[in-house]
Amino acid sequence: MDLRLRGKTVLITGASKGIGLACARGFAAQGCDLHLAARSGALLEAARAEITATHDVRVTLHVGSLSDDTAMRALAEAAGEVDILVNNAGDIPAGDLEAVDDAAWRRGWDLKVFGYISLTRAYWARMKARGHGVIINDIGNSGENFDARYIAGSSGNASLMAFTKALGAVSLDHGVRVVGINPGPVATERMVKIMKRRALDWHGDESRWEELFDKYPGKRPATAEEVADLTLFLASPRAGYITGTIVTIDGGIAARGSII
Rank of each mutant, 00 (worst) to 15 (best):
residue 197 R to Q: 13
residue 198 R to D: 00
residue 198 R to G: 03
residue 198 R to Q: 03
residue 198 R to I: 01
residue 199 A to E: 06
residue 199 A to H: 05
residue 199 A to M: 09
residue 200 L to A: 15
residue 200 L to I: 05
residue 201 D to Y: 11
residue 202 W to A: 01
residue 202 W to H: 03
residue 202 W to L: 13
residue 202 W to K: 00
residue 203 H to I: 13
residue 203 H to F: 15
residue 204 G to I: 14
residue 204 G to E: 15
residue 204 G to D: 13
residue 205 D to V: 05
residue 205 D to C: 00
residue 205 D to A: 06
residue 206 E to L: 11
residue 208 R to I: 10
residue 208 R to K: 15
residue 208 R to M: 06
residue 208 R to H: 01
residue 209 W to I: 03
residue 209 W to T: 03
residue 209 W to L: 00
residue 211 E to H: 03
residue 211 E to G: 07
residue 212 L to T: 00
residue 212 L to D: 07
residue 213 F to D: 01
residue 213 F to I: 06
residue 213 F to L: 14
residue 214 D to A: 15
residue 214 D to N: 09
residue 214 D to R: 14
residue 214 D to Y: 10
residue 215 K to V: 05
residue 215 K to P: 01
residue 215 K to Y: 01
residue 215 K to T: 03
residue 215 K to I: 07
residue 215 K to N: 14
residue 216 Y to I: 10
residue 216 Y to L: 11
residue 216 Y to T: 02
residue 216 Y to P: 02
residue 217 P to W: 02
residue 217 P to S: 06
residue 218 G to P: 12
residue 218 G to C: 09
residue 218 G to F: 08
residue 218 G to M: 10
residue 219 K to A: 00
residue 219 K to Y: 03
residue 220 R to I: 04
residue 220 R to D: 05
residue 221 P to E: 08
residue 221 P to D: 10
residue 221 P to T: 14
residue 222 A to D: 10
residue 222 A to P: 01
residue 222 A to E: 10
residue 222 A to C: 15
residue 223 T to H: 01
residue 223 T to Q: 07
residue 223 T to I: 11
residue 224 A to R: 02
residue 225 E to I: 09
residue 225 E to F: 05
residue 225 E to G: 06
residue 226 E to F: 02
residue 226 E to P: 04
residue 227 V to W: 05
residue 227 V to H: 01
residue 228 A to D: 10
residue 228 A to N: 12
residue 228 A to F: 10
residue 229 D to I: 12
residue 229 D to P: 08
residue 229 D to E: 15
residue 230 L to S: 09
residue 231 T to K: 09
residue 231 T to N: 02
residue 231 T to D: 09
residue 232 L to R: 06
residue 232 L to I: 08
residue 232 L to E: 07
residue 233 F to K: 04
residue 233 F to D: 04
residue 233 F to P: 05
residue 233 F to C: 00
residue 233 F to I: 11
residue 234 L to T: 02
residue 234 L to W: 13
residue 234 L to N: 15
residue 234 L to G: 14
residue 235 A to W: 13
residue 236 S to N: 07
residue 237 P to S: 14
residue 237 P to R: 08
residue 237 P to C: 11
residue 237 P to V: 09
residue 238 R to C: 15
residue 238 R to W: 01
residue 238 R to E: 12
residue 238 R to A: 13
residue 238 R to Q: 13
residue 239 A to C: 02
